[in-house]
Write a protein that binds this DNA or RNA. Sequence first.
DNA 1: CCAAAAGTGTTGAGAGTACACCCATGC
DNA 2: GCATGGGTGTACTCTCAACACTTTTGG
Lengths: 229, 229
Amino acid sequence: MIIGYNPEDKVYLAVDCIIFGFDNEDLKVLLIQRDFEPEQGKWSLMGGFLKQNETLDDAAARVLHRLTGVHDIYLEQLYTFSEVDRDPVARTISTSYYAIINIEKYNEKISKKTNAKWFSLSEVPQLIFDHDDMLDKAIKRLRRRTSINPIGFELLPEKFTMRQLQKLYEAILNKELDKRNFVNKINSMDVLIKLKEKDMSSSTKGSFLYIFNEEQYNAKQDNHFYLKL
Amino acid sequence: MIIGYNPEDKVYLAVDCIIFGFDNEDLKVLLIQRDFEPEQGKWSLMGGFLKQNETLDDAAARVLHRLTGVHDIYLEQLYTFSEVDRDPVARTISTSYYAIINIEKYNEKISKKTNAKWFSLSEVPQLIFDHDDMLDKAIKRLRRRTSINPIGFELLPEKFTMRQLQKLYEAILNKELDKRNFVNKINSMDVLIKLKEKDMSSSTKGSFLYIFNEEQYNAKQDNHFYLKL
DNA sequence: CCAAAAGTGTTGAGAGTACACCCATGC
DNA sequence: GCATGGGTGTACTCTCAACACTTTTGG
């Protein structure tokens, strides 16, 4: 026995993932309907238990992959929830993670999977345990992050219009933005490349497509952007 | 056995606390020298194991109290560290918390306790395990928080001078601030009460003392301050 | 020719930043 | 009378926010 080490008790450790997506209209979150007790039939975040030889980051990535088929997604740890009775079955402490993904890119895979469904933020049903709190924290964090540096490109197709990008920001921040101010601000960040190509699907005039200039972005990353909207 | 619940493994759960203090000169952090193996003699954050019937928040408060005698301190969860080999003895996952306290107010209590010592941020020795990372994250968080709303009053005596407050911000942000701009900004927040009393210890002229106007502060809390320095 | 979305600049207000001199007093 | 830290205001710049009209083209 090692002196000073006196682990009082063991507990179960889990991860839960808040997956955000965007469908060109609303910010959505991916939920699953539980097909097992407790709380069978209710909606919840995607979760799973930690394995012996993986980190929480690994576990979150594994759970996400198992339930959606999605790989190589940036996951960020949010907060660890530890209320004693949060899970009625056993003392379980859960670390929440959030990720943002492109709905179209993954939709096919996801829809084949078990009981997963996208919900607009305004239509999220009551979730099990403390998953509402988790979602809440995730939304707040996403909003804060959005104003620090340009997240959100992960949520769009490779080529996108200014309008789409604006709608995405509006969905995340849950408020309307002025078109001219938005364009000016985005352009001043200098992380987009304007293509000669136009998207003709949304208007007769057509709107220019942009791609994300990853190189520029990475170069500026450290300084932060402080895109205040 | 409950279907769908398949907890793969159990792990040990701990908390570690990063305690910041201020001595009118430097921002300091409270460390303890381990008097047990492993890593006996090395410096570490204050930590302990989670008990069966307490939350992580509770555990952090308990550990802090046990090792410093300090009560009723605002602790904020930082991040949960879960590298498989972070603790060589057993798989241990640790959730870090940080707090900021008034050194003078508690110094007597603390100095009686086991091996605890304040270190200026620039003089922190190498810490055990991943405690360096924890400290690093805490400093970053503290700096970010400082610019969102006026933290830091916790670190000062009840009555303090503008100069002290400025030094505190300089210590947290690790840069020099302009005296006039600082005073203007603080005054524009309208959360201090200027006393008629002066502190005569630092100069012949004496400098006015202030107290924190908690009521005003709480009233404004929600809107945030965005004290950009 | 008209409906529908795209595209584009200017102005005013407020916040941030840089900057220098006088004041009070103990010694 | 002088050394030491305390106290104070202004001018410039930059960013944010509000705001409206023209362009394109498919139908």
